[in-house]
Design a protein around this nucleic acid. Structure first.
Lengths: 232, 232
DNA sequence: CGACCCCTTGATAATTGTCAATCCAGGTGG
DNA sequence: CCACCTGGATTGACAATTATCAAGGGGTCG
């Protein structure tokens, strides 16, 4: 809970300052398709990113060959603040639109406003801090999922939307929560029965109800709306 | 593993730079006894700390009243880099000797060397990054413990010591690893049988073997050596 | 319309949490 | 120096949760 409050404060206080700060630099935008990677663990770190549209997942490649997703980065979030090399891999969960911020330029203008520079880096480490709260203790899978949708719910209310569909597969979410996909599925069924979660097609919705059911062609259009929703 | 490499690099490359950086400020030292707290979640953040001797634990107080330890901070480590307010609680695990670094001063001299300032803050967030690797996936309790002692082993080799005794109770370690104390105990027994872990009195030792067994009076003296070991 | 992939569901085994009792190291006081 | 005391550590038994394996169904996309 505390982390959520910190998050909202960051969004209210720092984003404007940080946004103005980075505007001093020459920025540009890039797009990515779902599954494409932005950088890999070990790459030299040259850019910080801001998500304008879509969702990014941050993950580590375990020595056992398993990849561990530890953060989902959404619209308005910054990520990729590494001084030397990348400490994780970043991939697109959805269609993606990003603003690219060169680190070299950040360090240059950092002399004028070190606080804004720190705030930008702190915004990027936000995802690591949140991770500390996830999967801690020994709550059941249902409680992990409930905590997750609660945190995601914070985003939709601040975005002024009534609902949001999870912009990634259940397999990804299971990986993130540290449970087996089957376990997550059962937990989702459980929360759906209690009305804490909704389902529309293959997508899970949190917050408001999904749009009314229609025929297949219509559903595709609704999914378009879903994409718009999770992209703000 | 990757995180460990990053850590060692930080220790080799940044610490000297960061140390020289903070030397520009007026620093002072404080002591703490085991269990005493340095700050609580929500407190205004005024200081960054460097551990000179002993160990600190960082933890969150869950809404269920349970505290979750997410990091152990040891000699040479920095912690406490928050811009606004504390995002966690810091407590002494052992007898503690710390160097206090005022944040206001850091921000002031940050204009001259923003990179060093960022490196200091990055060194502080190191513990959050490491946390991402812990408890991820669904390894067994024994594997979690094995991964932990492997990471701690890195510290002892870099410190030039042959062994180190865990400077905190098994309850704390169980909390950190996200398992029940009984489960951790069983895992410890398992690793002790395989020689991956040693026991001396009530303390667990990793790396080199504990000092030879002697009589009670002697053992107390050995434990003093243990304290010296975990304090470097 | 068809194929592929993800989701779902069931059954079973393994791991772990929980509860309870006991042990023992380390400290205390006599 | 020794008996006592206290709290963490240990051990066992059991219940609960979850991982795993396997099979089937349904959505999504070509």
């Amino acid at each position: 809970m505390e982390g959520v409050r910190d998050m909202s404060k960051l969004a209210l206080v720092n984003d404007d300052q940080v946004g103005a700060f980075v505007q001093q630099l020459r920025l540009w935008r890039i797009q990515r398709r779902p599954g494409q990677s932005l950088y890999h663990e070990g790459d030299p770190a040259e850019f910080v990113y801001r998500v304008d549209k879509g969702w990014v997942r941050l993950l580590l490649d375990g020595e056992d060959g398993l990849r561990r997703i530890f953060a989902f980065v959404g619209p308005g979030d910054y990520f990729g603040a590494n001084l030397q090399e990348r400490d994780c891999t970043a991939e697109a969960c959805t269609d993606l639109q990003l603003t690219v911020i060169p680190v070299a330029g950040l360090l240059r203008i950092g002399r004028t406003d070190p606080v804004a520079l720190l705030e930008l880096f702190e915004a990027c480490t936000k995802h690591y801090r949140e991770r500390v709260e996830v999967g801690r203790g020994q709550p059941s899978a249902a409680e992990k999922l409930r905590a997750f949708i609660a945190r995601m719910g914070e985003r939709i209310t601040s975005g002024g939307r009534s609902g949001i569909c999870l912009p990634f597969s259940q397999v990804n979410l299971a990986n993130y929560l540290g449970v087996a996909p089957e376990t997550l599925c059962r937990a989702a069924v459980q929360l759906c029965e209690r009305g804490e979660l909704a389902r529309h097609g293959r997508r899970l919705w949190i917050g408001g109800c999904p749009p009314p059911r229609q025929k297949t062609g219509k559903q595709a259009k609704e999914l378009g709306a879903c994409d718009a929703a999770h992209a703000w």
